[in-house]
Amino acid sequence: MRTPGWISQHMAALRALLVFTVLVGIAYPLVITGVAQIPGLRDKANGSLVEVNGQPVGSSLVGQAFTDADGNPVKKYFQSRPSASGYRLDATSASNLGPESVQDTLGDPALADSPDGDGSKQALLTQVCARSKAVGELEGVDGRRPYCTDDGIGAVLRVFYRDGMSGKVTRAVSVNQPCPATPFIATYEGVAVECGKFGEDYGGGVLVPVRGDAPAESAVPADAVTASASGIDPHISLAYAKLQAKRVAAARDIPVSEVEKLIDEHTTGRALGFMGEPGVNVLELNLALDRR
């Protein structure tokens, strides 16, 4: 008796499913796992774990924060770059904010004491300004940046013109400084600048960032104020590491030259010799300081 065609087709499909399940779902992973355990590859395949006294303290491929229980930087340690995920391995992410993110979302004053927050949200510009100010204070340098107020907020106005996009200025609002704050600039083209008010629609105004008198090149490097795409970058720039050397040396009561020597020893070169910039692995550098 001849087997019906539709049964033959289903049997062929089932055999193919079983064969490829064994090859791709079992054999291939076992082979790759075996290859990964070859000496020279085993460490990277197992996560490039870093151990102290036989206990894992991190990975050379994953960054982590060196802060106290309140989130304040521990002065004897080099600090990693900011992280949009808070260095949570289960939530690696970027902020997805770009250069045009300059206006904050003001919070509702009525929710100031709410455990869920007041609904405010900082734009990328204000995040950068606040971080630069904090790093400058921590390291004892000028943390001011262009388009930032002295108190670490994006220096941005919503300017209203008589003819919509041009003409005489009729109103100017410092949209990132909620009332009753005093605006960072008193007047703009002869018009008094107002503080921002929650709930008001400023969409009819033109966004105008104000340059200010900060130096064009800040003493605080860019990677000290911006998060990486993954949120868990283990490296910082050589410039950011050297900025922190004086503070770390003072906290540990050792010569700055000794700290700078350790920085050089833990600086990796460009990928393939030409891609990217040299970087300093923060975890390995801090462990080297502890071993000292």
Rank of each mutant, 00 (worst) to 15 (best):
V31A: 11
V31Q: 05
I32H: 07
I32M: 13
T33C: 10
T33A: 13
T33D: 15
T33N: 14
G34C: 07
G34P: 06
Q37E: 06
Q37R: 05
I38N: 13
I38L: 15
P39Y: 03
G40P: 12
G40Q: 12
G40C: 11
R42D: 14
R42H: 13
D43Y: 08
K44S: 14
A45P: 03
N46K: 12
N46A: 13
N46G: 12
G47E: 00
L49F: 08
L49M: 10
V50F: 03
E51R: 15
V52D: 01
N53S: 10
N53R: 05
N53F: 08
G54W: 07
G54S: 07
G54H: 07
P56L: 10
V57K: 03
V57W: 01
S59G: 04
S59H: 06
V62P: 02
G63M: 02
Q64R: 12
Q64Y: 00
Q64K: 11
Q64A: 08
A65V: 08
F66I: 10
T67S: 09
D68Q: 04
D68V: 06
D68P: 01
D68H: 01
D70F: 13
G71W: 02
N72W: 06
N72A: 10
P73E: 04
V74E: 07
K76F: 00
K76C: 03
Y77H: 10
Y77N: 07
Y77Q: 03
F78C: 00
F78I: 00
F78W: 03
F78H: 01
Q79N: 04
Q79V: 00
S80F: 00
S80M: 00
S80G: 00
S80D: 01
R81H: 01
R81Y: 02
R81N: 01
P82S: 01
A84W: 04
A84D: 00
S85D: 11
S85F: 04
S85H: 06
Y87N: 02
R88V: 07
L89T: 13
D90I: 12
D90N: 15
A91Q: 14
A91F: 13
T92F: 06
T92N: 10
S93R: 15
S93Q: 15
S93P: 06
A94K: 09
S95G: 04
N96Y: 15
N96G: 08
N96V: 13
L97F: 11
L97E: 08
P99L: 13
P99D: 15
S101V: 08
S101C: 11
V102W: 04
V102R: 08
V102C: 03
Q103E: 15
D104L: 13
D104S: 14
T105P: 05
L106W: 00
L106K: 01
G107E: 12
G107A: 12
D108V: 05
A110L: 14
A110M: 11
L111Q: 15
A112G: 11
D113L: 14
S114T: 11
S114A: 15
P115M: 08
D116L: 15
D116T: 13
D118H: 03
D118S: 05
D118T: 06
S120D: 05
S120K: 07
S120G: 10
K121N: 10
Q122A: 14
Q122I: 05
A123V: 12
A123P: 05
L124V: 09
T126V: 05
T126C: 06
T126M: 06
T126I: 03
T126H: 06
T126F: 07
V128G: 01
C129L: 10
A130M: 12
A130G: 11
R131A: 03
R131L: 02
